[in-house]
């Protein structure tokens, strides 16, 4: 079991990339910065499981919170909310690092 690379309350950025194939990181958060709410455990990588790989590697799963204003800054005021998305570690990088 590998140690989680990120800690609760840490700011993380979702990688902005578009590899082909099965992905469980939604487009609307890619390239956006959020805050780790919780380290949710370790699970086999769905991007490998999806292709029949029963030996898919274990990845740390994080619950990451995004602010509406960061996701959709062009939206008119009135919608102030958070979206929490479950994201695997291979899709996250420290918020300071430039993508």
């Amino acid at each position: 079991m590998s140690q989680p690379q990120f800690q609760t309350s840490e700011r993380v950025r979702v990688r902005q990339w578009e590899p082909p194939g099965h992905i469980r990181t939604p487009s609307f958060i890619r390239g956006h910065t959020g805050i780790v709410q919780q380290i949710a455990g370790q699970f086999r990588n769905p991007e490998e499981l999806a292709y029949g790989r029963k030996d898919a590697r274990l990845l740390t799963l994080y619950r990451v919170a995004f602010a509406h204003d960061d996701l959709w800054p062009e939206s008119p005021p009135g919608e102030q909310h958070a979206v929490i998305v479950d994201i695997y570690e291979n899709w996250l990088e420290p918020a300071e690092r430039k993508s």
Binding site: P26, P46, L61, Q80, H81, V83, I84, V85, D86, I87
Partner: peptide, 12 residues
């Protein structure tokens, strides 16, 4: 009231 939307993308 703070609204929080949970997107179930993974194993929960």
């Amino acid at each position: 009231v703070d609204l929080v939307v949970h997107d179930s993308t993974a194993d929960f």
